[in-house]
Amino acid sequence: MHIMEGFLPSPWWQIWFIVAIPFLVLGLYQLKKLFAEKRETIPLLAVAGAFVFVLSSLKLPSVTGSCSHPTGTGLSAILFGPFITSILALIVLIYQAIFLAHGGLTTLGANVFSMGIAGPVVAYALYMAGKKASLNTFVNVFIAATVADLFTYVVTAGQLALAFPAAEGGVMASFTAFLAIFAITQVPLAIIEGVIIALVFKYIIDVRPDILVKLNVLTQNTVNRIREAAA
């Protein structure tokens, strides 16, 4: 769910840039370090960014009939961690604005914060917690991806509510109103994306489980156990 160009008034679009910038500066600093130390990760990061972009431009099978796209950042956070995801999300969101006319430039700060920082951090934290509690891998991925999607939309509703507080009840009242109206499309969408990303995991484990082991997403033991259970 992108906030469209021109929708956030001053000072809110500037504020969200200021909130997002420390994360991005930190991300860029770590990217510089990664480029200097482990050059072999550069092409892999590049294909990861392109993957997130292409995934987010595919049309999801839809129930409501509205045009819906996966965010892709939940999957990226599980695979590459939240910090790399925030830089990838920044680049992907600029491309979405310029290639697909989704989102905008003044609202880039707000969109990077909701889709590139808040959602991925939640997805990563949940996935790690689930892994520690040795939850079933697919259930864990489903929960992480769905909640990350939902959280992204809660943050977007919050950003709009702060910019447009209600006359009676202030920010909280308009927050509830935005949440309620976005829920119509976003809740089914988040569940579908969760199911799909859990299935994506199944297919990756079928074909190239070594990638997931290499990225520290799964241990070799878990992969063996899943493959045995399937066989």
Binding site: F51, V54, L58, V195, I196, L199, V200, F201, K202, Y203
Partner: peptide
């Protein structure tokens, strides 16, 4: 099918 597409795209 969508999930298979996304998974294979990643690989």
């Amino acid at each position: 099918a969508f999930a298979m597409l996304a998974g294979m795209l990643f690989v």
